[in-house]
Design a binder for these strands. Structure first.
Lengths: 208, 208
DNA sequence: AAGAAATTTGAACATCCCTTCAAACTATGG
DNA sequence: CCATAGTTTGAAGGGATGTTCAAATTTCTT
């Protein structure tokens, strides 16, 4: 299947297959798994990516970027800092324990202790997410919507940290902490940190 | 080396070696690595643990328990809730990016998405740490030292979550977030959550 | 000290996995 | 339709790893 693709498209297909394989078998997924996910044999994969590790790295890097890009894109659809904050918190959390994006983050978090490349990628992602929240907080403060209890950087760091941690809990299938609970836990902090009730009044979207 | 040990002691030695191997090579460390860390050959390891996976599991379980036990032990040496809180937060964080205990937690966090056993172990650890903080907070509130901004469970969950997340950041070698920064970030939250400055005034122990 | 039991070794074996490569296949231009 | 370049296959090679096991070694018992 998938015969007449261009070189670039073929590589992207394989990167996608690799991402899938990592989700299923961990950061050191096997070449066979990637090949199977792509519907080809090992040799075909090697033809495009002579080094398997390079393919895995590319797949994981792409996965992280996609996660971040989607967050930014979702954020951009709102103007109200309150809406932005609430929606972004929710978006940063996995839907359930099978959520692919966050499971990838967790996988890489484990590998970061051994593989500096993944440590660097995750650190970069964290910093960018912090900057994202920091900007949101500062805009809200400038507009008088937020009255920040600490400096924006501190709050932003803590918000991303909470997201990360509850992501792990949800992926691990915590019996009582699902996405909604995690959202309310994080917003509990965000409320006191911003001195804002963080309620979206324009619609009937009630956070449990 | 290590000849005349009892069966039980021998197993513990091997479990320790396995723990070391996991830190170096990840959750799927190889039998050879364990054997080398223990100073024996593969066969000797298999004699005591016919299944390698079982040994790895036992090693990781033991590592988690030790982490928790040490926290509780350190906690027990203080009576003042403020001291308890500050010291416990610090103790939950890795000393640096090479900290063994926390690196193990990170490793397992990555594997939890695929292996339910590790998910269960980490969930249990999280809940016990939450209970630990919850108790601390309630005692402090009862004594009038803390005035909790939310219910104790919420604050406790967030405190452990922050610890976990900053543990990952430190293990990943974040350039600006070390243990001291992480402590102050977490205490920034804890201060508003407990309405207490969280300063230890009884001694001249200045955190670096 | 001698025999029995427990433990460890080291090698053999089977399996898995990455890599290479010649041959087969496909697409595309002439 | 042919020729050429690009792509994929499938098999073979080689290294690493888990497992088994008889022999060697050590420890325990008497």
């Amino acid at each position: 299947m998938a015969k007449g693709k261009s070189r670039q498209a073929r590589r992207e297909t394989l990167v996608g297959a690799a991402r899938q394989a990592v989700l299923e078998y961990g950061t050191d997924a096997k070449l066979v798994h990637v090949a199977h996910a792509a519907g080809v044999t090992s040799g075909a994969v090697l033809y495009h990516f002579p080094d398997v590790k390079e393919l895995l790295l590319e797949a994981n890097r792409a996965g992280l970027e996609r996660f971040y890009d989607e967050r930014v894109a979702a954020l951009a659809t709102f103007d109200d800092p309150v809406e932005q904050l609430v929606v972004t918190v929710r978006n940063g959390l996995p839907v359930d324990s099978h959520d692919g994006s966050v499971r990838l983050l967790c996988e890489l978090g484990g590998a970061a202790g051994r593989q500096p490349v993944y440590a660097a990628l995750l650190t970069s992602l964290y910093d960018r997410q912090v900057a994202m929240y920091e900007s949101m907080l500062k805009v809200g403060a400038a507009r008088g919507v937020f009255r920040l209890a600490s400096n924006a950087l501190t709050i932003a760091r803590n918000l991303v940290a909470l997201e990360d941690a509850y992501g792990y809990r949800i992926i691990a299938g915590h019996p009582t902490i699902d996405r909604d609970i995690a959202v309310s836990l994080i917003l509990d902090y965000a409320r006191t940190a911003t001195d804002n009730p963080l309620v979206i009044n324009s619609e009937g979207d009630d956070e449990q």
